[in-house]
Structure formats: structure tokens, C-alpha cells
């Protein structure tokens, strides 16, 4: 009896979570005319693929997609390299100034992002990077949270393994590259997913920086389209569905690592 209550609660909430997503998928295949007639699911024979060609015809959707992939990919790679190397140094070496560096980084994590918008705009303006992809990537190189994630995880790599690598002829960078990074594979996966999702969904900064539509990323591009083609609901949902797919696929690829990485800082920190 009690179990039945537990399960029904869980199922009710599951439905709440899933219905909007299912509705998104259905709407992506729904003819514009049917939005009024069938609020939920139209008969299967009325579903259509027409929204997708319409989407590509109305706007440079592919262009947006490529831009998003380029910006997110570049940002994740640079962040990964900088954060993992820095996290390794903070986890496995003792050196003068270490505490100070960690303290300053932690303190800046407390400052909300919007504080940086104005000075960052000024900086990017002076670097002549307004309306460029570099203007999105460069300010995103620093991921303090990511660095602490790596530090936390690399603390648990045994010192003896690093010493063994040193005895086996590694220099310090080779230790990082051949031993520490491969051992940290789960956290690398989690980091990549978190960083990718962050950049992929980034809106405010690109909205400020980007001006030309051929440089738009997906969030900016799709949002602009809403203004212009307000009535084409089907194409809008098709675009949203396609925009979400890469994150979903990456998540399925890395989900084990992701959950572990997400909760690592919280539970242990």
C-alpha cells in the first residue's frame, strides 16, 4: 500500500517532467495549421516533416549550428586544458603562493557574473573582438569551478603513482599527460559535459556581443527568429528540438561521469 503511494507520486512527477518534452517532439512534427486544432497529439497521419525544410529555408539554421559547435568546442578544449593543468598543480604540488592563489580564485567565484558584463564589454571592445566568435571564446577560457573540480578529483590520485612515473622516466608534464589525465577520465568526461552545456546554452553574453546574423549561435539565432516568424510554431519547435539534441547525445555518452562529477564538489566539499 505504502509502496503504491510512493510509486504513484514518482510517476506523477515523472509525467510532469516528461510531458513538455514529449510535446516538444510532437510539435516539431506538427503542421502549423494543427496547433490550434490539436493541442496535444494530432492523429499520426497528420504528422509532417515539413517543419524541417521550412526551418532551413527561413534562416541560416545550419550556420547557427556550426557557429555553436565551433564556439562551444573551442571553449571546452581551452577550458579543459587550462583547468586540468591548473587543478593538477594545485592538487599535487606544494609551492609558495598556493594558498593565496586558491583563496583569490574562491573569492572571485562568489562574485555574480553580471558584475563582469560592463568591464568585459569594454575589454572586448578595445581588443576589437565585438561581433566575433573569439569575443565569445576568449572570456570563457577561465573556468574557476572547473579547475576546482579537477583539483578535488586529482587529490585522490595516489602520490606513489606519480613517483612511479617519475622513476619510470616521466618529466612533470609527462606525468600529467600520461598518468594523471588518463586516470582522471571520469572527471574529464563530467567536465566536458558541464562546460559544453554551459557554452551551448549561453545567451546573455552572445546577445551583447554578436551583431551579424551569420555569426549567431543557436540561442541567439532561434530567439531572433521568434520575433520575425512568430506564427511558424512548427519550425520553431523543430529548431528547438534540433538545438537540444547535441547536448542530449553528449549526455548519454557521458552520463555516468556527469552525475559523479556534478555531486563530487558538493558531497565532499
Amino acid at each position: 500500500m505504502r509502496r503504491a503511494i510512493v510509486y504513484s507520486l514518482l510517476v506523477v512527477f515523472s509525467i510532469g517532467c516528461l510531458v513538455p518534452i514529449v510535446w516538444l517532439v510532437v510539435s516539431a512534427f506538427k503542421a502549423n495549421a494543427d496547433f490550434q486544432a490539436y493541442a496535444f497529439v494530432p492523429p499520426v497521419d497528420r504528422l509532417t516533416m515539413a517543419n524541417f525544410p521550412s526551418l532551413f529555408k527561413q534562416m541560416p539554421f545550419l550556420r547557427f549550428m556550426v557557429n555553436s559547435f565551433f564556439v562551444a568546442g573551442a571553449t571546452v578544449i581551452v577550458q579543459l586544458f587550462f583547468s586540468s593543468l591548473g587543478g593538477f598543480a594545485l592538487a599535487k604540488y606544494e609551492f609558495a603562493g598556493k594558498k593565496a592563489i586558491m583563496g583569490v580564485m574562491l573569492a572571485t567565484m562568489m562574485i555574480p557574473g553580471p558584475v563582469l558584463l560592463a568591464p568585459m564589454y569594454e575589454l572586448i571592445y578595445h581588443l576589437r573582438l565585438i561581433d566575433s566568435h573569439l569575443g565569445l571564446i576568449v572570456p570563457g577560457m577561465v573556468n574557476v569551478f572547473g579547475m576546482f573540480l579537477f583539483r578535488q578529483s586529482m587529490l585522490s590520485v595516489p602520490d606513489e603513482m606519480l613517483q612511479a612515473a617519475r622513476m619510470d622516466g616521466c618529466n612533470e608534464f609527462q606525468i600529467f599527460w600520461h598518468v594523471v589525465m588518463p586516470v582522471s577520465r571520469p572527471i574529464v568526461g563530467a567536465f566536458c559535459l558541464i562546460a559544453f552545456m554551459g557554452t551551448w546554452n549561453s545567451f546573455l553574453w552572445p546577445q551583447i556581443i554578436l551583431q551579424s546574423s551569420d555569426r549567431f549561435t543557436l540561442p541567439i539565432g532561434l530567439n531572433q527568429m521568434v520575433g520575425v516568424y512568430e506564427a511558424d510554431y512548427g519550425a520553431m519547435m523543430a529548431g528547438t528540438l534540433l538545438a537540444v539534441l547535441p547536448v542530449v547525445m553528449l549526455f548519454f555518452l557521458l552520463q555516468k561521469e556527469f552525475i559523479a562529477g556534478l555531486t563530487k564538489g558538493a558531497v565532499k566539499g
Binding site: M161, Q163, R166, M167, G169
Partner: peptide, 20 residues
């Protein structure tokens, strides 16, 4: 540096590389 001494060592935890 350890690597130029050409000395080998076996550690208490063995310190095998788990990914290899």
C-alpha cells in the same frame, strides 16, 4: 633526476597505472 639515475623502484601500493 630520478630518470637519469636509471634506478627502478617497486612501491608498496605497486602504483600500477590503472588505465594501461
Amino acid at each position: 633526476h630520478p630518470r637519469t639515475r636509471n634506478i627502478a623502484m617497486v612501491f608498496q601500493s605497486y602504483a600500477l597505472y590503472p588505465h594501461k
